[in-house]
């Protein structure tokens, strides 16, 4: 059974890397019994969500907006 230090390290890595099956299992078992690490895991997830790949909608500028932008830039 892994301790909190090891669990925290796996949580940190999990946001960016794929964990092995063994690591995932160890983490799941630890988290099942440790509220602090579950809290840390959720904090990590929120942190990642706030700055991560947060593309929700495809946003585009209209042709008019692009022309307006070009005019502003050329007059600067």
């Amino acid at each position: 059974m892994i301790d909190c230090k090891e669990a925290a390290h796996l949580i940190d890595r999990k946001d960016f890397e794929k964990l092995s099956m063994k690591e995932k299992l160890n983490l799941r078992m630890h988290n099942a019994m440790c509220g602090q690490c579950r809290g840390y895991k959720r904090f990590s997830h929120i942190l990642k969500s706030l700055f991560g790949d947060i593309t929700k909608h495809q946003e585009c500028l209209s042709c008019e907006e692009k022309e307006e932008l070009k005019k502003k830039l050329s007059s600067s």
Binding site: T55, H57, E59, L61, K70, L73, S74
Partner: peptide, 26 residues
């Protein structure tokens, strides 16, 4: 037009949507 002006016009065409999408979602 300076080289930068010319580049800027093509940058607006090429990158403004990508940049805008990135910014709008943030």
């Amino acid at each position: 037009q300076t080289k930068a002006d010319i580049e800027l016009n093509s940058w607006v065409d090429d990158y403004s949507d990508m940049l805008f999408n990135f910014a709008a979602n943030r």
